[in-house]
């Protein structure tokens, strides 16, 4: 399968990339790692006139600490995220979930920014960044703006990014002392999640109870979402298996999961409850 023809540009800076995007208009598409975009082009589900390849924009790569935040360049690959000591120390949930994305060869090319901007509801990392309360740093012709993860994911494959804007950085608050876990149910090893649950738990002072919990849901609707009712039920909960199990029964409330070849909506709601219980139990145990 061969993609339809397109023009190609390879800017070397973010400013140049934004200029090229502005000149090209809405028919341009940004190429990050290409692990989602190239299959789409080859299946001819999309016909961009121009691909703007960010592969030469060195400034978009790398991970650094800025006060209490971790700053990850949009073109940082999953492989780099998984093995980065700063991510492992301060955003372990992200490292853990990124290690489950597809397979090693895809993780060598696929990028954090690419997977967030693509916003596939079955993608692992949008829901994780939502649970981590990440902030997206976006560059457009008028300069930089920031978008909280809660406002970034708009609909199926749609984000708050405008056609002339570029996701440049992902800022993640350091969550030292939190426990975390990522539970993913998939049909075969490298497949997309049928449902995934990302859980982060801040233990109470007594070391047994739960002070605060964040739950991100993968593939439970057109966009990633939080299990807010479960989060509320876990706030101040005693951390017992019963309490966590009760809170997890609320995990599918307000979701609109798809029905497809991998399972019905009802099956996904069941998975969300079961995986949430497992994820929170594991997260509470690792805090």
């Amino acid at each position: 399968m061969i993609p339809a023809t397109f023009d190609y540009a390879r800017p070397q800076s973010t400013d140049e990339a934004v200029r090229v995007l502005a000149e090209a208009g809405p028919e341009a598409k940004v190429l990050a790692g290409g692990q989602s975009l190239l299959p789409i082009l080859r299946l001819r589900l999309s016909f961009p006139e121009l691909l703007v390849d960010l592969g030469a924009v060195d400034a978009l790569r790398g991970i650094r600490q800025d006060g209490a935040q971790l700053v990850i360049g949009a073109m940082t690959t999953h492989h780099e995220v998984v093995h980065d000591p700063l991510v492992r120390a301060h955003a372990g949930l992200l490292a853990r979930a990124a290690a489950t994305v597809a397979d090693p060869a895809v993780r060598h090319r696929g990028t954090l920014g690419g997977s967030l901007a693509h916003a596939d509801p079955a993608g692992d990392l949008p829901a994780v960044c939502l649970a981590l309360d990440a902030t997206m740093v976006v560059l457009g012709p008028q300069g930089f703006r920031t978008v909280p993860a809660a406002e970034f994911f708009v609909d199926y494959l749609q984000t708050a990014l405008r056609p002339d804007e570029l996701l440049t950085e992902i800022r993640i608050p350091a969550m030292d002392g939190w426990g975390f876990h990522y539970e993913k149910f998939q049909r075969v090893a490298q497949a997309w999640a049928v449902v995934g649950v990302a859980a982060a738990v801040r233990p109470a002072q007594d070391g047994r109870g739960i002070a605060e919990a964040r739950i991100g849901l993968v593939n439970m609707g057109a966009r990633p979402m939080r299990a807010h009712l479960t989060e509320t039920a876990l706030t101040g909960a005693d951390g017992s298996e019963e309490a966590i199990g009760r809170a997890a029964t609320l995990a599918a409330e307000g979701t609109h999961p798809p029905t497809d070849l991998s399972g019905s909506a009802e099956y996904r709601e069941h998975l969300a409850r079961v995986l949430t219980q497992r994820a929170v139990l594991a997260a509470a145990g690792t805090a």
């Binding site: 390879r10 190429l31 190239l38 299959p39 060869a105 895809v106 090319r109």
Partner: peptide, 17 residues
């Protein structure tokens, strides 16, 4: 590709420049 395994059906030739 530059020391990393990749699926060559998921990479454009221009990206190997």
């Amino acid at each position: 590709l530059d020391g990393m395994s990749v699926k060559s059906c998921q990479v454009l030739a221009v990206q190997a420049d």
